[in-house]
């Protein structure tokens, strides 16, 4: 019989302890840790692995990134231009397949060529829209003109990306 009442008492006691904890949060509005996402956006840290970006003008076309990628996200096609330099004609990154592991960024031998942007909102309506095209395209005429044109293209892309 004593055990019967003792059981009841311990049960009641533990229930009340728990309720004490929950009411502490219940009446304290400062305990809320929610961030109101679309209004309040947290600043990602410097090392944040967001959307991949290629500074195509300094890309040497070495294909190190495409080779290291474990899920074959990067489609890279290069041609040799008249200066015997490799020119990345097609440089597509399929964000839908990217697993954001960062191996390509580490593999890139050129500073600030391939890197992660601090961007995490880039949903799209179709899978095709998720592919970012960085390639320079086929050079139409050799020399200075082509260079100017490519600079324009990347500028446009950058704007579009933003």
């Amino acid at each position: 019989m004593a055990g019967y009442f003792k059981k009841m008492f311990t049960a009641l006691n533990s229930v009340l302890t728990g309720m004490g904890i929950t009411i502490k949060y219940g009446v304290n509005p400062k305990a809320e840790v929610t961030q109101q996402y679309p209004e309040v956006k947290r600043e990602p840290p410097d090392r944040f692995r967001g959307k991949l970006f290629v500074n195509i003008n300094i890309c040497t076309g070495c294909t190190a990134c495409a080779r290291i990628c474990p899920v074959d996200v990067i489609t890279l096609k290069t041609v040799r231009d008249e200066n015997k330099k490799l020119r990345p004609v097609i440089f597509d990154i399929n964000n839908a397949r990217c697993i954001y592991c960062g191996l390509c960024v580490e593999a890139c031998p050129v500073d600030n060529c391939l890197y992660f942007e601090k961007k995490y909102e880039f949903s799209a309506y179709t899978k095709e829209d998720l592919i970012s095209h960085f390639g320079l395209g086929e050079a139409q005429s050799p020399g200075k003109k082509a260079e100017e044109k490519t600079a324009d293209v990347t500028k446009e892309q950058k704007e579009a990306a933003q």
């Binding site: 949060y25 219940g26 009446v27 305990a31 809320e32």
Partner: peptide, 10 residues
Amino acid sequence: KVAGDIQARI
């Protein structure tokens, strides 16, 4: 709302 308060949410 009560659930939110108790669970440190809004």
